[in-house]
């Protein structure tokens, strides 16, 4: 196609050393013609090469393309956006869903704690997260990774996430890691476009419709808490959780970042997060840091508590403790 460019056979070209100062003193018209043809051909080929991009206008409506940042949406805007997203979910996944926008409860500040003495690494939390949060079934993704650690060492270097045997093993302990909802979140500082931020109740959220997918936050997170949508998630219609939050478990678009949001569509309505309900060992404790009588404050006051990678100064709202 573009080889036509090379066809003008002009063995030597002393011409172009001639004085050129008179403006637009172009060469022979034949050459100009050929160049124009070559350029046109090149442009056409370029258009053809980029033709797979046509899926963008097919999949991204004008409204979606022009959609503003979450914080700039009025209640009216949100209504329209949520209705559009619900319709798109129906069309693409065949599921009737309701998208809501749960707001932080005034005065509440969430925190999570995990009893490392109790957790036995059975992975029910990952399963619950996968189902609750409409994760990609193809890769059985979840926001949690459970590390099987060697007793006597807090060095994750000796940990493994791929263990596949009865648990707990006698010489191991188990460390589930998910978003630590840091008070000084490196991911939020990293984001170039404020697509991720910390809400008043301490939850770090992502506007999946604002994220450009640069993955700088994923590089910045010291806890492997962020997940990227490398492709559009697949979920059978009957498995879609219809109870969805805009900033939490709605089905994420391809090419955007996501992360644990403490099930805010549940917790902001007073309900326990899915992973806590699913834990058969009772190792998970969730609650309001601002309530002095909460379970989480009991843990902080009475247990030997630690946070992961405290030396990085991220100030997690996620704690680990031993009995």
């Amino acid at each position: 196609m573009t080889t036509d460019n090379a066809s003008p056979q002009e063995p030597h070209d002393g011409e172009h050393l001639k004085p050129l100062l008179p403006i637009l003193d172009q060469h022979s018209t034949r050459r100009t013609l050929l160049k124009t043809a070559g350029a046109a051909l090149g442009l056409a080929a370029f258009g053809e090469a980029l033709s797979p991009l046509m899926v963008i206008p097919e999949n991204v409506s004008v409204d979606e393309f022009l959609q503003q940042h979450y914080k700039e949406l009025t209640d009216e805007d949100k209504k329209k956006v949520f209705a559009r997203l619900e319709a798109e979910t129906k069309e693409r996944f065949g599921a009737n869903v309701t998208i809501t926008d749960a707001k932080p409860i005034p005065g509440v500040r969430f925190a999570y704690a995990i009893n490392v003495s109790k957790c036995n690494g059975n992975g029910k939390c990952m399963e619950a997260c996968n189902k609750e949060n409409n994760h990609h079934r193809g890769v059985d993704q979840s926001y949690i990774r459970v590390l099987e650690m060697t007793k006597g060492s807090m060095d994750m270097e000796h940990g493994s996430t791929t263990y596949d045997h009865t648990v707990p093993q006698d010489d191991k302990f188990y460390l589930p890691v998910q978003c630590q909802q840091c008070d000084n979140p490196p991911c939020v500082s990293a984001c170039p476009i404020e697509a991720t931020w910390k809400e008043d109740d301490g939850i770090v959220v992502v506007d999946y419709n604002w994220c450009i997918g640069c993955r700088y936050c994923e590089a910045a997170c010291p806890y492997h808490a962020r997940r990227f949508n490398w492709e559009l998630p697949e979920i059978p219609a009957e498995e879609v959780n219809p109870n969805q939050g805009y900033l939490s478990n709605r089905i994420r678009p391809q090419g955007a970042m996501e992360k644990c949001h403490f099930c805010l569509h549940r917790t902001r309505e007073g309900r326990a997060p899915a992973c806590q309900e699913a834990c058969p060992t009772g190792a998970r404790v969730f609650g309001d840091l601002n309530d002095p009588d909460s379970a989480i404050n009991y843990v902080l006051k009475n247990k030997r508590v630690f946070v992961l990678k405290e030396e990085l100064g991220t100030k997690p709202s996620f704690f680990y403790f031993f009995d």
């Binding site: 109790k118 036995n120 690494g121 059975n122 992975g123 029910k124 990952m126 399963e127 996968n130 193809g138 890769v139 059985d140 993704q141 979840s142 990774r145 996430t161 791929t162 263990y163 596949d164 045997h165 009865t166 648990v167 707990p168 058969p280 060992t281």
Partner: peptide, 16 residues
């Protein structure tokens, strides 16, 4: 003592 369990759910990471 809490019984031993068999993990039933594992992420199917691409790299695996």
């Amino acid at each position: 003592q809490f019984p031993k369990m068999q993990p039933t759910f594992k992420p199917k990471d691409r790299f695996l």
